[in-house]
Amino acid sequence: MAAQLRSALTMFFILTILTGLAYPLAVTGIAQLLFPHQANGSLIYKDGKPIGSTLIDQPFDDPKYFWSRPSATAPFPYNAAASSGSNLGPTNPALTEAVKSRVANLKSTDPGNDTPVPVDLVTASGSGLDPHISPAAAEYQVRRVARARGREEAFVRTVVRQHTEGRQFGMLGETRVNVLALNLALDASDEPR
């Protein structure tokens, strides 16, 4: 028993150093060397300053921007220091109410658009930080964004297409549009050159 206890303590100590320090630090070192951009959060830089990440979205409610998915993070949406989903169940009246008001909000900023709203645009994502919307959700907003920016719908559609990513290897996951990258590109296209 005493011999086993001694083995238990020393074994635990050694495995702790090995798997708890050596392993993560070695992986960090190699990752920083080989993939510094990804390892540090896939940041987007403008004039040398980080302005966001291609993997984490931001909240938008200005008609001139494409809106991202609803976010349930607290206390404000897209709080990337406290990721969370809504956890609302399918029969919870709070879910139906939230979706109803999101649909109404979309319709009120885009009068005359009577097409049904794609579901991803009115439901909260799992992380609360989802960087993407579906192509259908982007298409739903093209008319509103074009009008708010005084641009041709065709032009906005082109920019959307440039920020649409297909299924990985043509098979995995879903086709998706990166909202932050899309909005940054639209802003950039408005700047006088």
């Binding site: 991803d120 439901t123 989802d130 993407h132 996951g173």
Partner: peptide, 17 residues
């Protein structure tokens, strides 16, 4: 599921569908 994952998307991420 037309140009979108469709289905029950509450709590799900678009890239996974």
């Amino acid at each position: 599921a037309v140009n979108a994952p469709g289905g029950n998307m509450e709590g799900k991420e678009v890239r996974f569908g």
